[in-house]
């Protein structure tokens, strides 16, 4: 985790709290994933709902008690990103030999999953670089993509106008996509 991460998660406190936070994020993503796998659009929650639910569940815990709702959403988005990226990195490691146990995905999505893993790792790397260049933009992308926040929410979170947020998003998105393409192919 880089310095920006620790900045974002400063409110999260001790290790146990972080552990908890990631567990919740994981559960939420699991639920989303299950909905997608069932190809049941009705059962699929939006990422926004997801973060809301996570917030409710965590609202009484020390992690979140001190945080504003927006701040929490920022934290939750970070946790989502972290979970997904870690899963992807582990799987890539597993494919390269790793523990030697059989790695399993759904057979029909094996290829796309492998592609996703590499892309996600590349995105994560690029986001970390973006955070060094412009932490605000990195946050913007993280919150909007991983946390499912709407543009007005993100603008409020970052303390900028919606027009500025949209402008920042456009540039960041274009750059990140270019980086992912390069990185994933290079990986």
């Amino acid at each position: 985790m880089d310095s920006a991460d620790s900045l974002i998660l400063e409110g999260a406190g001790d290790r146990e709290a972080l552990d908890h936070l990631f567990s919740v994020a994981y559960e939420e993503l699991r639920r989303l994933a299950a909905g997608v796998r069932r190809r049941d659009p009705g059962a699929t929650l939006s990422a926004t709902t997801l973060v809301n639910e996570a917030w409710i569940k965590l609202a009484r815990t020390p992690v979140v008690a001190r945080a504003s709702e927006l701040h929490f959403k920022r934290i939750a988005a970070r946790a989502m990103r972290q979970v997904l990226v870690t899963a992807a990195r582990r799987r890539i490691a597993g494919k390269r030999g790793g523990t030697g146990s059989i790695r399993v995905t759904y057979d029909e999505s094996l290829d796309s999953a492998a592609g996703s893993d590499a892309e996600l790792v590349a995105l994560d790397d690029a986001l970390s670089e973006l955070a060094r260049m412009n932490p605000r933009q990195s946050l913007l992308v993280e919150s909007r993509f991983f946390g499912g926040l709407e543009v007005p929410e993100v603008a409020a979170l970052l303390g900028v106008s919606e027009a500025t947020a949209l402008r920042d998003w456009r540039a960041a998105r274009a750059w990140l996509a270019a980086q992912v393409k390069r990185g994933a192919h290079g990986a």
Partner: peptide, 25 residues
């Protein structure tokens, strides 16, 4: 960047749950 700006099917254009479904096995 300009090329990606025109594209609409990149990773960031999808939804996170789709990604989760692929990544969490």
């Amino acid at each position: 960047m300009i090329e990606e700006d025109r594209a609409t099917s990149g990773l960031l254009d999808g939804r996170v749950e789709g990604l989760a479904a692929r990544v969490l096995g």
